[in-house]
């Protein structure tokens, strides 16, 4: 698919923003996790697909917009700060990992990196908000959680990529 921005790709990007919004909303309503902040990160699927389809810059835009509107749907100002920072940094990291190491790193690896960056950047926001370094004691659990959620969302992305996009997205 072309990475040039034309009317068609703008339309598809808008479609992906709304898919991401729905996923974010469903996730906030349905998934109950034992830990606060521990989420599956379903929207990560959309972010990875966007990186492959429209390139990193557009994917970054899509995920930041998506998390902005999504936090209006699901939470408040605090949620927005966490969500937008997480989306921003995880998109950037996945973009760079994809750019530098893609054929060597599979979609699952990219997804795990994205989940880990997402969690760590949100934790840094929490440290700034609570002006307390002790929030960092959450880091070990979050890193292990990001491995699990990154693996799950990465596999889902792989299945989607294989079926929907007839492209050379290898694993």
């Amino acid at each position: 698919m072309k990475k040039k921005t034309n009317t068609r790709s703008i339309g598809i990007m808008a479609l992906f923003i709304s898919i991401g919004l729905v996923l974010q909303y469903i996730e906030s309503r349905i998934l109950i996790t034992p830990l606060p902040g521990g989420k599956l990160g379903l929207t990560n699927i959309v972010s990875i697909i966007n990186i492959f389809m429209f390139g990193g810059r557009n994917a970054l835009l899509i995920s930041v917009f998506r998390s902005f509107w999504g936090s209006l749907l699901t939470g408040g100002v605090m949620t927005m700060a966490y969500s937008v920072t997480g989306a921003f940094f995880s998109s950037i990291s996945m973009w760079f990992i994809k750019k530098i190491l893609y054929p060597k790193v599979s979609i699952i690896g990219i997804s795990i990196i994205g989940a880990a960056t997402h969690n760590v950047s949100q934790l840094i926001v929490a440290v700034i908000f609570y002006s307390s370094v002790y929030v960092m004691s959450y880091l070990p659990i979050l890193l292990v959680l990001s491995l699990v959620s990154g693996f799950i969302t990465g596999s889902a992305t792989h299945i989607f990529a294989k079926r929907a996009l007839k492209e050379d997205i290898r694993i």
């Binding site: 790193v105 599979s106 659990i141 491995l147």
Partner: peptide, 29 residues
């Protein structure tokens, strides 16, 4: 093959990072 070598490296690195951070936290708090 589902996971490449580099994938496994990433997983191991993140696990190590989490254990390391756990040790640091347990000592400092």
């Amino acid at each position: 093959k589902i996971l490449t070598k580099l994938d496994k490296l990433i997983i191991v690195l993140i696990l190590l990072l989490s254990i390391l951070s756990y040790v640091v936290m347990a000592l400092s708090i």
